[in-house]
């Protein structure tokens, strides 16, 4: 069995089945609602808008009527290596403020907003564009009432800091807290899943501990259909994708002609 570079106790990871994914966007909405992500008046400015779980639309480029579209939902990949074999993430190595770390207990890349100085090095270093800079304060105008739905489990961000997907880290804390109340120290497979995993109406997302062979996610990650985005950067993302379609798989990396190996 291939052992991940992280020998910590848990390595939480995700597998997204692109054949099941319908591109509906429920995961992205669930994520924003769960994590107090601010919604701006103009969300069409994709350079500035924030979506921890971003959906990318791809097409096979064939002419009518052989055209096909598909989607890549993209959370933070929670990379385990920086691409040079070091056990850290590309964003973590560049952070000058120790505001982001690869958590050894969970494999989650943390982001501490109160620590972040907003230099945006991490944003530049992330190959997956998973990091977002707050150009403005979170948009909750006084008297509009939008702040009524904010959850206390996730801290709202101020302008000038970077934010990103945390694998709903607060849900891990929630699960642990509940386990403690029930006199347990360990949590079960389904007790901690991210908001997007839970929300996906097509059950395309599987979440769990990659280090635990009993978890579905660790089996799925070893499927012959599994692949990761920009795998050859050697960042060892903990988000895997499944697809049986070669044209989809091919778009996961920048292949030279004849370099891509089709499944079939």
């Amino acid at each position: 069995m291939e052992k991940g570079p992280d020998h910590g106790k848990h390595r939480y990871g995700m597998v997204i089945d692109l054949d099941k994914c319908t591109g509906c966007g429920t995961c992205a909405v669930a994520c924003a609602a769960e994590n107090n992500v601010s919604v701006r008046q103009d969300e069409s400015d994709k350079e500035r808008s924030i979506s921890w779980m971003q959906i990318f639309k791809i097409t096979n480029g064939k002419p009518y009527p052989d055209t096909e579209v598909s989607y890549f939902p993209r959370p933070c990949m929670h990379c385990e290596e920086d691409g040079h074999g070091h056990h850290t993430s590309p964003c973590v190595t560049v952070c000058v403020a120790t505001a982001t770390k690869l958590d050894p207990n969970s494999g989650i890349v943390s982001q501490i907003y109160t620590r972040c100085i907003g230099c945006r090095y991490c944003q530049a270093a992330c190959p997956y564009k998973a990091r977002y800079f707050n150009w403005w304060d979170a948009y909750f105008p006084k008297g509009k009432g939008l702040d009524r739905y904010l959850t206390p489990e996730v801290s709202p961000r101020m302008r000038g800091v970077v934010e990103k997907c945390t694998f709903c880290h607060h849900r891990l804390m929630r699960a642990k807290t509940r386990a403690y109340a029930e006199d347990r120290r360990e949590i079960e497979e389904d007790e901690y899943i991210t908001a997007c995993t839970e929300a996906c109406p097509a059950q395309a997302i599987t979440f769990g501990d990659l280090n635990n062979p009993k978890h579905r996610v660790s089996r799925l990650a070893k499927s012959p259909n599994a692949f990761r985005l920009l795998e050859r950067l050697n960042t060892k993302p903990k988000v895997y994708y499944l697809s049986t379609k070669d044209w989809v798989r091919k778009l996961a990396d920048n292949y030279l002609p004849d370099e891509f190996k089709p499944l079939s």
Binding site: C24, G25, T26, A28, V29, A30, A32, A33, E34, V39, G143, K144, G145, L146, D147, R148, Y149, L150, T151, P152, A195, E198, A199, C200, P201, Q203
Partner: peptide
């Protein structure tokens, strides 16, 4: 603070659609 799908309802054994998921913004917006 959040809308989630029900697993004890036969119509949708899991998540709802994105509109239902974002429904709180239709409640809390004066």
């Amino acid at each position: 603070v959040k809308i989630e799908g029900r697993t004890d309802y036969p119509v949708n054994p899991g998540g709802p659609c994105p509109v239902g998921m974002g429904g709180l913004q239709l409640l809390c917006n004066e």
